[in-house]
Amino acid sequence: MRENSEGENSEVNKTRQERYEFIYGNTARKMEAAPAKPEYEPSRQPKRKPAVRTKRKTTPQTKANQTKALEFDFAFIKALAAGMAVIALVSFFYLSEQSKLEQQRSAVSAKKSELSTLLVENEDLNLEIEQSINLPAIQETAMKKYGMKKPAQSKVIAYDSKNVDYVRQYNKIPDSK
């Protein structure tokens, strides 16, 4: 590293603590007192003169422009009315669509509720029908009224289905002896 002057060399040789005036430890060291500020001496400082504001003169053209700017133009009023009409129409359309959407949501909700009720009723009716079937009464009626009889064991053929997707068993399956 090249040294240009003594001041630069002394800055490099200082420790980090010395360069940045870090204070380590739990107590602060006593610092040198700052030099006292000179007291205010009114005789030394010159008095300022109050600023005098001059009133600007406005030309007739400037006055005409100012009055014209303050007036509402008929074209501006038409544009403002057209803008307000567009905003009103868009707002009305938006609110009507929101109303339709809310009606559709409530209709869907009512239909879902009705479907749920009908499914429960259907399951109840199916269970009632299955429980109302009296197999011994059917067997007795078939034997007496229609002359049917049980087949012999040699005539019964067992069938095993390999494509059974769903089986619902309500009672114990009787043995075929």
Rank of each mutant, 00 (worst) to 15 (best):
N163Q: 12
A82K: 00
A69T: 06
I157M: 12
L89D: 12
V108K: 05
N126W: 07
R44G: 04
K100T: 03
K111Q: 02
Y146W: 13
G83T: 07
R48K: 10
E123K: 10
I173P: 04
S91V: 08
E11F: 03
Y159L: 14
R19A: 08
T15V: 05
P50R: 01
A36G: 08
Q103I: 10
P46H: 04
R168E: 09
S10K: 11
I129G: 00
S99F: 09
K111D: 03
I23A: 11
A158K: 12
K14S: 06
K14Q: 13
E6V: 14
K55C: 00
V108R: 03
Q98G: 13
A34S: 13
Y166K: 11
K150P: 15
E6S: 14
E102L: 14
P174H: 02
A158P: 12
M143D: 15
R44A: 07
T67C: 10
P136L: 09
N134M: 08
E97V: 14
P42T: 08
V12L: 07
R53K: 10
Y170L: 10
F93H: 14
E140H: 12
F76I: 08
I173C: 07
A33T: 14
I173A: 10
E130Q: 05
G147K: 15
S116R: 06
T117R: 07
A107F: 02
K78S: 07
K30T: 15
N65K: 03
F76M: 08
Y40N: 05
S109C: 02
L125E: 12
S176F: 05
T27D: 12
Y94H: 15
I23K: 08
S91L: 04
L127W: 09
N122C: 05
K144F: 15
L127G: 11
G25L: 02
Q45L: 04
A79V: 01
T62K: 00
Y20H: 09
L115S: 07
K49N: 06
E121T: 11
A107M: 01
K150A: 15
S154V: 14
E130S: 08
N171F: 13
Y170H: 11
A28W: 13
Q17T: 11
Y40D: 09
M31G: 13
E8P: 04
K150L: 15
A137Q: 03
V167W: 12
Q103K: 03
D124S: 06
K112H: 06
R105W: 03
S109E: 01
N4D: 11
K78C: 07
D73L: 05
Q169H: 00
L119K: 10
P46R: 07
I157S: 07
K47M: 01
S96W: 13
A137V: 00
N65D: 06
R53V: 03
Q131C: 04
K172D: 08
S161L: 15
L70Q: 04
K150H: 10
N122T: 08
Q17N: 09
